[in-house]
Design a protein around this nucleic acid. Structure first.
Lengths: 232, 232
DNA sequence: TGACTTGATTTGTATAGACATAATAGCGTT
DNA sequence: AACGCTATTATGTCTATACAAATCAAGTCA
């Protein structure tokens, strides 16, 4: 940007600094956009953008007519990128390997049908597979695909390509729900992930929909050593 | 907004729809801002805002000169709000209770000093407490506070107010790192959280800094039934 | 061939001005 | 006091215009 012009980033950082250093205490009403614009020698739109971003990251709360105040409880949100597992592994410099465990087409068990909102008569494709990093078990993937919504999955063997990778290029989705939890490894999970039975697992679950229509439900289990980290 | 004017939200949703329904396949280059602006009868700035938001949510990738293309692997990021535990509990309609377990001032153990980047001679405040929902153990909090950075913590007993709540209003931070993992409950955790020893726990860890200066390290352990959910 | 320059293109950002919208405060009426 | 209207005010958003920055491609020169 040209010299004299002040970036919304600069404003954002300066405002963040004032909040962090208690120039403006939590709960305080901070000056209005016009005032700040004059102070920084910028247009109101520029200040507005800075403030909107601060609001989205949870540092301030804004209300029409009342103004902008420093958030009382800065419950800043954490953002995690959910990568394709293969990329995640190679990004760490490890060798990625994939193994298909089973692939069956059947009517869904009640639990699965309920979670996905399917009737018990609709067919689902059940795929179980293992992702390995440098030969060590990294993730056990247990997936159910709604064949009514994704009939093309019937033609795919999933022998060399993981269902995740296949789905992102063949079955779009518009909504998703992520869940993370801890669980104890059952006999099979223990064997597959090379941990002892009952050992803690880090489990991620995801359901995706395309305009209300359920696409797939996947449970991804990692050995307990797995860590999900983010910085903000 | 006035009748004729088209909101960036409308544009954003329509573009998202086209991507979800494969009007524009993954990897495809989508029309430039000017073209879209003409199509929607909006200013380029409006289209720009819509596209920027789509880019941030990971649906498209943008590059100057090349243009905007539909992301090949929509690794859409998941956003989790990290609330104050008390609010989280009352928001669920449960009764919140807090119990202080211990509060000591001492030199940090090596592990903690290393994680926080402190010298072994600096004093830290070690607080352990329990958060309960409707009488049942909800979270075991094990916290270390850097007294060099937050000397005021020395005066606080933490008998009725949790360290988290106290800190957000008394010790600002500018950076934070979140980690989530699964772990097996040790004897003490098992007793406190009312699970059996070795049972899986869902553990969150957070370190915060104010301009490079470490403020606090906290480990928050939940019973394995705990779920962290987000929708996008 | 290969390194450098230049131009064209697309997104990125700032601005001034206008109007929209939400929420509040104050007033008047009952 | 309770209710509803109105004016006020701060944020929210759109437009038109301008220029900045990145980057790709083609052309130039050693």
């Amino acid at each position: 940007m040209k010299n004299g012009r002040i970036s919304f980033r600069v404003i954002k950082e300066e405002l963040a600094r004032r909040i962090a250093e208690r120039v403006w205490a939590p709960g305080t009403l901070i000056p209005g956009e016009e005032v700040l614009a004059r102070e920084f020698g910028a247009a109101r739109a520029t200040v507005n953008r800075a403030l909107q971003e601060l609001a989205r990251s949870g540092l301030v709360e804004r209300r029409r007519k009342s103004g902008t105040r420093v958030a009382l409880h800065p419950l800043r949100e954490a953002r995690f990128v959910i990568p394709i597992v293969g990329n995640e592994i190679t990004a760490r410099g490890a060798e990625y390997r994939y193994r298909l465990l089973s692939r069956t087409i059947d009517r869904p068990p009640e639990v699965i049908a309920a979670r996905l909102g399917l009737s018990l008569s609709e067919l689902v494709l059940h795929v179980r597979c293992l992702h390995l990093a440098d030969g060590a078990p990294y993730q056990f993937e247990d997936r159910w695909i709604n064949l009514t919504a994704v009939p093309a999955a019937r033609q795919e063997s999933f022998e060399t390509i993981g269902p995740n990778e296949w789905l992102v290029t063949h079955a779009p989705f518009s909504d998703a729900e992520f869940t993370f939890m801890a669980a104890a490894a059952n006999e099979e999970e223990a064997r597959l992930l090379d941990v002892s039975a009952g050992a803690p697992l880090f489990v991620g679950e995801r359901i995706t929909w395309l305009k209300e229509k359920p696409i797939t439900l996947v449970r991804m289990a990692h050995p307990g050593t797995h860590r999900m980290v983010t910085r903000l």
